[in-house]
Amino acid sequence: MPAQSKAQQKAAGAALAAKRGEIDRDELVGASREMYDSMSKAELKELAETKREGLPPKKDG
């Protein structure tokens, strides 16, 4: 499932970095913290790898 917005892709990247131990979990806030808690590394990687070109800044709705 590819990211649907640049914000979602960025949050997934932050959550993935925390899962990998590259940043501290306590640095995460908002959507990235929720993604960290509820998604696997594989799911986060898929979202984070989405190309940003053509994505809207934020998801509508």
Rank of each mutant, 00 (worst) to 15 (best):
G54S: 11
E34K: 10
S5I: 07
E27P: 03
D26C: 10
A14K: 14
R25Q: 05
A12W: 14
E46Q: 13
G54H: 12
A15H: 12
K59G: 05
E46T: 15
M35L: 10
D60S: 13
A14Q: 04
A12G: 10
S40L: 01
R25Y: 10
K10L: 14
Q8P: 05
A7N: 00
D37T: 07
S5D: 02
K51V: 00
A3V: 00
A42S: 08
A17Q: 09
A7M: 01
K58L: 03
A7T: 11
S32N: 08
G54A: 10
A42R: 10
G61T: 09
G61Q: 13
K6R: 15
D24R: 13
Q8Y: 00
G13E: 12
M35I: 08
A11W: 00
E22M: 13
K19D: 03
G13V: 02
A31Q: 04
K51P: 02
E34H: 10
L47Q: 00
L44G: 04
K59I: 05
L28S: 00
A18V: 06
E27D: 11
I23S: 12
A31N: 03
S32D: 09
K6N: 06
K10H: 15
A17C: 03
D24H: 14
K51F: 00
A11Q: 00
I23A: 08
R33I: 06
A18G: 14
L44K: 05
A48Y: 13
A7L: 03
P57I: 06
E34Y: 08
S38C: 11
